[in-house]
């Protein structure tokens, strides 16, 4: 009897030791999802309509992603312009491509603010998604995109200017670095990936 209780107590300890270890196994188990897919990320995000989503909810779509913050005055407007430019260059009949803008300033960039930003920048179509999450999740997602950022004053961040393309199973397939760069290759890559969908 004693031994059983002791065993139970120890077992309890083991199960309690890490309550977050369930998260990783929540990831989709489908075989078509490779090791390198962002669908494995358990983080939860909120879009400009206040709806909660996870990366795996965008499964089946080619994702074009960039990290910005809406109060940014210097680089982001150009990054956003680059995104719009890329979007406008895709053939009209291109399907299954989602443009995703992720905030690195989740405190300021509430869903309402993201919605307003989308409107100001004429990015209100279904193909535009704006996301925010906790600072921790944002830091982690930036790590996945190899985007570096730092808050350098109460108002400003410095951040990498990288536009990333993910294929329809969530693998990073192409990155465009810099501002106002020639986007030919990026556009080509998106079209290629979209045709596979």
């Amino acid at each position: 009897m004693k031994k059983i209780i002791l065993g139970l107590a120890l077992l309890l300890m083991i199960f309690q030791s890490c309550d977050s270890n369930k998260k990783a196994s929540d990831a989709p188990k489908s075989k078509s999802i490779s090791d390198l897919s962002i669908y494995h990320l358990p983080s939860k995000w909120t879009n400009q309509d206040g709806k909660d989503i996870q990366m795996k909810n965008m499964k089946g779509k080619v994702l074009v992603m960039v990290m910005i913050y809406t109060s940014c005055k210097s680089a982001c407007p150009r990054l956003v312009a680059d995104m719009r430019n890329i979007e406008s260059r895709l053939p009209k009949d291109t399907k299954n491509v989602e443009f995703v803008l992720i905030s690195i300033d989740p405190k300021v960039d509430t869903p309402e603010r993201l919605k307003a930003f989308a409107k100001e920048n004429q990015m209100e179509g279904d193909q535009w998604t704006f996301l925010r999450s906790s600072e921790d999740n944002t830091r982690e997602f930036a790590a996945v995109l190899a985007v570096n950022y730092k808050k350098i004053s109460p108002m400003d961040f410095s951040h990498s200017n990288i536009i990333s393309v993910f294929n329809n199973v969530g693998e990073l397939t192409y990155q465009q670095e810099g501002l106002n760069v020639n986007a030919d290759e990026t556009v080509q890559k998106i079209i290629e990936e979209a045709q596979k969908s």
Binding site: M1, K2, I5, L6, L8, A9, L10, L12, M13, S17
Partner: peptide, 21 residues
């Protein structure tokens, strides 16, 4: 008996917790 087992399990939990710490 019941009291003892409770003590025992508390004790083992304490040991485990302190090892963990």
């Amino acid at each position: 008996m019941l009291k003892r087992t409770i003590y025992m399990s508390l004790f083992s939990m304490f040991i485990a917790a302190s090892l963990w710490a």
